[in-house]
Design a binder for these strands. Sequence first.
DNA 1: CAGTGGTGCTTAATATATTAACAAGTGGCC
DNA 2: GGCCACTTGTTAATATATTAAGCACCACTG
Lengths: 141, 141
Amino acid sequence: MRKFDDSLPLQLLKAREAAMSFFRPLLQEYAVTEQQWRILRALDEYQELESKQLAERCCILSPSLTGILNRLEQVGYIQRRKSSEDQRRSCISLSEQGRQLVDTLSPQVEQRYKQLTDSLSQQKLEQLSTLLHELSQLRSL
Amino acid sequence: MRKFDDSLPLQLLKAREAAMSFFRPLLQEYAVTEQQWRILRALDEYQELESKQLAERCCILSPSLTGILNRLEQVGYIQRRKSSEDQRRSCISLSEQGRQLVDTLSPQVEQRYKQLTDSLSQQKLEQLSTLLHELSQLRSL
DNA sequence: CAGTGGTGCTTAATATATTAACAAGTGGCC
DNA sequence: GGCCACTTGTTAATATATTAAGCACCACTG
């Protein structure tokens, strides 16, 4: 039978752990979690997003998102407003404080990201990115 | 700046989600979690392992492992014994019931794994595996 | 306009992840 | 033997992940 270590999900997990080891110390220094940073990063790029879009882009399920957004709101990094057309939807955006954090952290994150990509070569990185994208499209029937 | 969706950790996360979508329904049907299955799978392959080795191979931190092993022991899938030479270490192994579960589930998991790999082509899979392994070796200085 | 199905988000309950602190066991060293 | 540094495993506290329920709001339809 196929060996345990050959499991694709496990390989993906280990690869991600290695990649995250580049950023964890930095994020911890600023007291934001990995997931919180994904949210902040997405909001920085898309200005204002609904919860559902945020969940989709950040790969976070809505029940988790509820808690994360509550905490981010409490420390003052984001703000919400109810959509005027649809009372169910809430639109999330960065607060001034949140934007400041992103502006401060982003360059440092980018620097470490470069260390990471340089360690692997540009070509392999693109190759990997392509394969990962292809895999992401797959769904069990 | 680099786009949000280009983030390697996020790509790895999404790829893993896609891959796991092939197995989640099956695992849920047998009421075992993803992590519990990793443990059982590892124990099936290595007979008996110490907690630390298990944590290493399954990519699970010790505090999480403590809880997972407690639950697996309670439902009767594993058993522990203290190492005779070193009273700190505990050796974990599959119980008869645990072995039965693995024997029942493994073929079905393999079947879905084949669906997954067939969807991607053998060549790309090997290519991906190689790149992931290389990435896994990297560590932030 | 009440009824109905569907959507967006939250709650609840349980299982993990993550960091720090701790408790106990081991080995070396004086 | 007693002190010490180190290792193994656990506990504690907080943040997420996952599935199932629930609740409010929306659009549609009779």
